[in-house]
Simulated scan of single mutants.
Amino acid sequence: MTDHNSLPNSTPDVTSADLAATSIREMILEGHFMPGDRLHQDQLAETLGVSRTPLRTALARLAQDGLIDYEPNRGYRIRRFLVTDIREAFTVRANLEGLACRLAAESGMSRSDRDRLMTLVEEGDRILSNRVLDISQLPAYRRMNVEFHETIINAAGNRWIGRFVHQSHNVPLVSDRVILWDDFGVIHRSHDDHHRIAKALADGDGVRAQNLMSEHVIYAGQLLADRLEADPTAALRHAFQDRKAER
């Protein structure tokens, strides 16, 4: 997981504001902040090792993207989203990632991408091999899950798919970083989907891979939205429990 104590090394075309925006976005998506939390600029500037000017630019950009809200005389807060927003964003994400699977299969995934997907599936198998959800294993499972989805999106060969999927992540709970780590049966089912998706892609079966991925994402969205409607506090606690433990 990204180390947010300092910004990564920049390239000539990347500004401090760009790096700050990327780091803060990852912190939000990974649950370092909860919906409604206020962002304290002095603390953020110290954590990221940047001055206030690029930080303000970064925050303004994230507000434009819809991740945070600006309140005059009060500063920035993590945006709150309605459950209907989450359901609708998951529908968009499901269709986009399903399309990514079909394009990746039809274009012929590289051997390295196919091998990487299988390695990630095996990593998930190892994490779940004890048939219990160890909280210390959640970060590793999350990293595996993110890389699994990103590998397929990149293999699709269409940069717009990745751009729009990442835009859907601006509804933070829709991000593939969110894992409800409290029901082994649910996690096991989800990881079984990874097996089937990887197999369909390896077989070049784009339609099956598309349908499997769409259902995989829709199921995750329905589960999360239903949990939020039934008990928002508990759902947020389970979605970000390893992050809450660090706070």
Rank of each mutant, 00 (worst) to 15 (best):
residue 171 V to A: 09
residue 218 I to F: 12
residue 162 G to E: 03
residue 234 A to S: 15
residue 165 V to K: 01
residue 191 H to K: 09
residue 179 I to W: 06
residue 156 A to I: 02
residue 51 S to F: 02
residue 173 L to A: 06
residue 172 P to G: 07
residue 138 L to H: 11
residue 112 S to T: 13
residue 84 T to K: 13
residue 79 R to H: 08
residue 14 V to G: 05
residue 213 M to N: 03
residue 40 H to L: 09
residue 238 H to L: 10
residue 144 M to V: 08
residue 115 D to A: 14
residue 208 R to D: 10
residue 203 D to Q: 04
residue 9 N to D: 14
residue 94 A to R: 01
residue 84 T to W: 12
residue 222 Q to R: 13
residue 112 S to R: 11
residue 222 Q to S: 11
residue 144 M to L: 11
residue 16 S to E: 13
residue 59 L to P: 00
residue 4 H to E: 04
residue 207 V to G: 03
residue 42 D to T: 11
residue 194 H to I: 00
residue 78 I to Q: 06
residue 195 H to R: 06
residue 52 R to C: 05
residue 193 D to E: 10
residue 147 E to Q: 11
residue 196 R to K: 05
residue 245 A to V: 01
residue 69 D to G: 06
residue 207 V to F: 10
residue 45 A to T: 01
residue 90 F to H: 10
residue 76 Y to W: 05
residue 11 T to V: 13
residue 97 E to D: 03
residue 109 M to A: 08
residue 146 V to C: 07
residue 228 L to G: 06
residue 40 H to I: 08
residue 192 D to V: 08
residue 232 P to E: 01
residue 37 D to V: 00
residue 240 F to H: 04
residue 217 V to R: 05
residue 28 I to K: 00
residue 53 T to F: 14
residue 109 M to K: 04
residue 211 N to D: 13
residue 164 F to Q: 12
residue 86 I to W: 05
residue 119 T to D: 15
residue 70 Y to S: 05
residue 29 L to Q: 03
residue 113 D to E: 10
residue 246 E to C: 07
residue 166 H to L: 03
residue 219 Y to R: 15
residue 50 V to N: 10
residue 26 E to G: 11
residue 69 D to N: 11
residue 58 A to W: 03
residue 175 S to Q: 04
residue 66 G to P: 07
residue 54 P to S: 09
residue 168 S to I: 02
residue 111 R to T: 12
residue 141 Y to Q: 04
residue 104 A to L: 04
residue 29 L to W: 08
residue 6 S to K: 13
residue 21 A to I: 00
residue 191 H to E: 11
residue 33 F to M: 00
residue 230 A to T: 04
residue 73 N to F: 14
residue 51 S to I: 00
residue 45 A to V: 01
residue 196 R to T: 03
residue 70 Y to F: 15
residue 189 R to L: 13
residue 141 Y to N: 05
residue 103 L to H: 10
residue 211 N to H: 11
residue 197 I to Y: 07
residue 65 D to E: 12
residue 86 I to R: 02
residue 200 A to T: 00
residue 163 R to E: 11
residue 127 I to E: 10
residue 121 V to A: 09
residue 144 M to I: 06
residue 42 D to L: 15
residue 54 P to K: 06
